[in-house]
Amino acid sequence: MRRRPGYLRICGSVFRYMSEWASRRQLFIWILLAAPLIAWILPGQTVVPFLPLAISCITYCGPAAFITGWRCSDARNDLADILFRTKAGKYSLILPEILLPTIAGVLPALGLAALWTAGRGGIPWQLWVVIPFASLTAVSVTVLLEKYLDQTGYILNLLAFMAQAGAASWVLSPVFQLMIPHGYVLWTLRWIDGSRAAYHGDIYVFFAVLQGIGLILLTARVLSDSGINHSD
């Protein structure tokens, strides 16, 4: 008799053990707090209001808090050991481990975006797209930088994150606005607000989707190769 794996149950379990692993780390709370902290402390607050900056930061911090260090953790290796060789296969682990951090960025960011756009006629369609894809990019960028640059990757990621949060003057140049995916949400929000975005909002959406899809394919490949004795 042909049996189908219980993907939803597996997904639930992976969510649970990943959340438990993440919340046990001291780093978790610091990465989460980095969003409002940077939004508040950096001089960008004088140029950009707090709420759009916080939305942009949370889109990145939520996923980073869950995924940083996860790929090489014992918990992840143990789960890979349990799931990779089963009928459910590698993607029964890879999908939820990408999905959970993405949701951790999307839900609070969309919540705040709803607040911010309440007096502006609701959330524009660009935000519905750009926020999830920016979160997905955050997962990918964190995993890929960690894989290829290790500690240097974390620093680079943090610098890019601070650059967009700081809204430094050089970031306002049109080229940099597209080169730093960390800032897509912020530029879209600024475009909605009508203040100093280099491009039309649809351009950010286009690039967010393009980068999100491209990077997540690479990330899935990296994650499927990571795990004890599972490099097949």
């Binding site: 049996r3 219980g6 438990e20 014992d74 143990d78």
Partner: peptide, 30 residues
Amino acid sequence: EYVSCNFSCPQGMTVSGHLSLASAAAGHSR
């Protein structure tokens, strides 16, 4: 199926939790 002598689980995973996960992966209904 391969059973390793260096088997470990994520922290907090109970025997029933592990077997339930393995059962879902094997395709048994709830």
